[in-house]
Design a protein around this nucleic acid. Structure first.
Lengths: 613, 613
DNA sequence: TTCAACACGTGAATC
DNA sequence: TGATTCACGTGTTGA
């Protein structure tokens, strides 16, 4: 982990009193479920917009800043830092999303729009996915998007990673490449870190000086603490560069920012955008022309720089026009220079570059999705992906089986059968059966050991009806149901009944099936007698007769084996069907009765049901 | 499907009285779950080793052979054919495995070793994966591995597919490339069909005559009904070829057999085997020398054959040594001919070919795993794979959540809180957490994905309490609890709270742990706010202070991660004890605090709880 | 030195 | 016809 610390030390240059408040490096956990706080650096500066309760300074002596590597006075930044959790779920939240999308996020938390963020976070937060995790930057003021920061951060990580050759030693860390989904549709490439790491090895990038781009950035006064209050255009930095004189810096910059943050292609850099992958394509074109003139001037510099350039090539794709003429020593018949005859070959060349890039990006994206990565070469990426897909398929199947069993058990004990089985046609066409059992829970009580059997073909009957012994007392009362119509839409329903398992749930379902929403329920019990008072409301425009409601509920309470009257077949058939298709293939054997239309099957029911949790 | 029939007609040449008994083409179903019987051809011959019950001939008039295209007397082969199921599961069995592995299998069923196969299958079965399915050959005698059969079958299919250009018209069929898992570990390439199909397009394969290799095979008396009783060495066919005169046949053969069946590298063809992918490498090498001499003789033939060779190139990889000198018109500085200077370049070339092949194979294998294939190009393969992986991940997560929810709901009803969380280490090392809630937790309900962690050693705590979004509405209300003491034994308790999953249950538990019996409960909800009015009664003689009750409930509602203050052990024990006899068998990780003894722990609690069923 | 892996440019094919 | 895709051979790394 010392490489992380080193990176953090490098990143320390961008935290400070006039810069970012803190910088945190998060790492996805091995199981991909949480991301963990790994390291941080703290500015040690006072935070301006701290609208807290004013007691922070009291705690200066109480807690130690998480940034232990750098001794500094405890400030609000330290406090904010301490508020960050040690880990957070990967699947939810902006952190995980950022890591998944592999797109840097620039979050401006103002008072207006950050309802879901606590006001302590007022300010600007930059989440920058890097190859092995996520870098979080925060400053308590509003800062406009600054892609040079992104470039810097990503570059620091890629450089450090390269120098430590972590890619070859630690698969676990290297495997957590971030994900690029947005780049799938368009031909854009996002995983520039991998690209950078790849391109480092390119030998043709002859004009890269051996100093690190970060150094260049700082030398060029592009240090990230240039973040100021003026909202810089993201491409502003580009104008700082002299293309003809410092190609490496330019290439570095382009490499770092070529992946547009938030995909803002509307920069004035080049108006001739293509629909697809146009951004780097245009840069390609721009550089192409640039290189062509440069090659005339600097082609002779190739040889002396050739040795040094090996580790510094930041973006060979952008600069290989240079290498075009750089390795032209042999003859001019070389097809690379044939572009002088025209552009057909050159077009093809560029298109091929684009294609390769796209393929690489997707390959890396794919790799980023696979948790276990054995090796980093292409073949292994594919192999791991294949295995992972198989594994995932297996898991899905297992889980479906398990779920089915679970539901079956539930049905058996539940004697209550509102189960919605629905086909979900997912985006990729894989049919997926999900079963939402919605009568569950809460309402089924425990020990009813599989006392059900199928009689006839759709009748589920209970064999030992006395579960709690209440009905043995000879009560055997006739249920009483009263329905009072308050107005056209509301009813008071009183049900006085003998307690039977599942009776309450059946009542709820009956209401549901009658198009009635339960807004209030009162449950009173004495011995085995139960009084339920419901206040129900008609959900929709269908007319519901009060006596119809009463009849239905009476039938329900009288006859525990049935569902509500007119839909009893559904219920019992359900019970039967569940046991029937226990281990069948998922995608087949869909029971048609499960697709019967039942008005809004679960929403209102669940509303009340959830309240009872 | 007429292309299938055509292929089957071609394959008919290898079934017959002295050859294979039958040939069946299986096709994977679209959902990748089963493989289906598609077509067959039957030898119509009597099977020799039929050790059946002797009644087969009685059925000659009863059933029609599945091979309806060819009128023939019903024989044992027809009978065997009829015994094949119309479909079989893809995931299990040798058929699916073969299709997955994309390795031809040669199964010799003798009396000794085929315990898992019925004795009717005594004989030899060859399973040959082809691009769009699997070809099964069977003969009721022991036949040694014959790779020419494999070559023939695969070639028939690739040829027919190519001629019908199925790859471009029917994505579904073409997408069902078989899977090569075994080839993942070694650097070998198995999906030679794709390779063949690819190589067909290669223009450099100049020496391929326009006749199909199958024709060549037959002309050379290499028809697969050469299978005889003598155990031929798989390489015997090779000796029939005259390398210098009929390269195409040789190449075809090598193409078909280059992927070693069963990876038997121990043939005497070339002892200099490499560890990995050495087989085709060695063939490469062998052909290399062959081609080099040939190129001197036949280099001039290149031009006239160039047009015809495009569709006939069976293995350009093997013959491109020819093409090396075939396109040497321009200059001898061409690096392909630089191998005359030595073999470093040639080695690289071959290795590169191998690498490409491996990559392609895996790419196709990956594609074969993805159900929805948009396009057939590489980028789309990757894109589809990426989307599919994401989809699968999502599915797995959903299913797990659902399962958890299911269990939790069950728990809610069951009032027992033994949660078993176990790490399942799957095959590929991806850790998968599954939670088997078996007694079920009362205390955790609703969708709370992975929000639990063990504190201390037996306390289950919830980390992110607001999951269902109820608390995101900005309500964040402080719960209000009022306790009114009616007389010495009865209380009215009003709890106005924000709905949180499990809140109601916790309240019930709190009452229980306080020694209070709930005799009446009213639940009213509006939006995410819940009003509970309880009428509770003191169960026993212990004195309960009203403010104590209030404090406890406040704490409960305020802090959903906690149990009730001082009596958490009691209540949770209740939950456990109630279901104790129910699912006794699978409670492993009972938390120790659940086993405390408490006098009459649950009866009153259960009364109210059961009423809600 | 060898070898595997890779990016690259190129010709060809396909649409 | 122009765009796109592909296989191929090559040079160049690092191991």
């Amino acid at each position: 982990m010392e490489v992380i610390q080193e990176m953090m030390e490098r990143l320390r240059s961008i935290v400070g009193p006039e810069s970012w408040d803190y910088c945190v490096f998060w790492k996805p956990c091995k199981d991909q479920r949480v991301i963990e706080w790994v390291d941080c650096c703290c500015s040690g500066s006072n935070v301006r917009h701290m609208n807290g309760n004013g007691g922070e300074h009291d705690q200066q002596l109480l807690f130690q800043c998480k940034d232990v590597a750098f001794h500094h006075p405890t400030t609000d930044a330290c406090h904010l830092l301490s508020l960050l959790p040690p880990s957070m779920p990967f699947d939810s939240g902006i952190y995980g999303q950022t890591m998944i999308s592999n797109q840097p996020r620039w979050l401006n938390f103002s008072n207006s729009s950050d309802s879901n963020f606590c006001e302590e976070n007022l300010g600007t937060k930059a989440l920058i996915p890097v190859s092995i995790g996520l870098v979080e930057l925060f400053v308590s003021k509003q800062i406009a998007e600054d892609q040079s920061i992104v470039a810097f951060v990503t570059d620091v990580f890629s450089k450090s990673l390269e120098q430590h050759s972590m890619l070859n030693t630690s698969n676990n860390v290297a495997s957590s490449f971030s994900v690029n989904m947005d780049g799938l549709e368009d031909g854009e490439s996002k995983d520039y870190i991998a690209q950078v790491l790849d391109d480092h090895k390119d030998p043709c990038n002859n004009f890269q000086p051996p100093i690190s781009p970060a150094t260049i950035l700082e030398n060029l006064n592009l240090s990230p603490h240039n973040i100021s209050d003026n909202h810089m255009h993201p491409m502003n930095f580009l104008q700082h560069f002299n293309y003809g004189e410092n190609r490496s810096a330019k290439n570095m910059f382009l490499e770092g920012t070529r992946e547009p943050m938030m995909m803002n292609h509307d920069d004035p850099f080049d108006p001739s955008l293509e629909d697809n992958g146009g951004f780097d394509h245009e840069i390609d074109m721009a550089l192409q022309g640039q290189m062509m003139s440069d090659s005339n001037n600097k082609g002779h510099l190739m040889d002396p720089l050739e040795n040094n350039s090996k580790k510094q090539g930041n973006d060979v794709n952008r600069s290989d026009s240079v290498s075009d003429c750089s390795d032209q020593n042999d003859d001019d018949d070389d097809p690379k220079c044939r572009r002088r005859n025209g552009k057909p070959q050159s077009k093809n060349l560029i298109a091929e570059r684009r294609r390769r890039k796209k393929l690489n990006d997707r390959l890396y994206t794919l790799r980023s999705l696979v948790p276990k990565i054995t090796k980093l070469d292409r073949a292994s990426i594919l192999k791991d992906a294949i295995e992972y897909v198989m594994e995932l398929k297996r898991q899905v199947e297992d889980l479906q089986n398990e779920l089915e069993e679970n539901s079956d058990d539930e049905d058996t004990t539940n004697n209550e059968s509102t189960i919605v089985e629905q086909e979900v046609m997912h985006g990729n066409g894989s049919k997926q059966k999900r079963r939402y059992s919605q009568g569950h829970g809460m309402f089924m009580n425990g020990p009813q050991p599989e006392a059900y059997s199928v009689i006839g073909n759709n009748e589920v009957t209970k064999h030992n009806p006395d579960v709690d012994g209440a009905s043995e007392k000879g009560q055997q009362m006739e249920p009483q149901v009263e329905v009072a119509s308050l107005d056209g839409n509301e009813f008071f329903v009183k049900v006085f009944r003998e307690h039977k398992p599942g009776g309450f749930v059946r009542l709820m379902e009956a209401f549901n099936s009658l198009g009635l929403e339960v807004t209030n329920v009162n449950v009173t019990s004495f011995r085995c007698l139960v009084l339920n008072v419901f206040k129900v409301e008609r959900k929709d425009s269908e007319m519901v007769q009060a006596d119809h409601v009463r009849e239905s509920l009476l039938e329900i309470t009288r006859n525990p084996s049935k569902g509500w009257p007119e839909t009893s077949t559904k219920a019992s058939e359900n019970g039967h069907g569940m046991m029937d298709h226990h281990h069948h293939n998922h995608n087949h054997h869909h029971h048609s009765h499960l697709h019967n239309n039942q008005p809004k099957p679960q929403y209102h029911f669940n509303a009340m049901y959830q309240v009872l949790n």
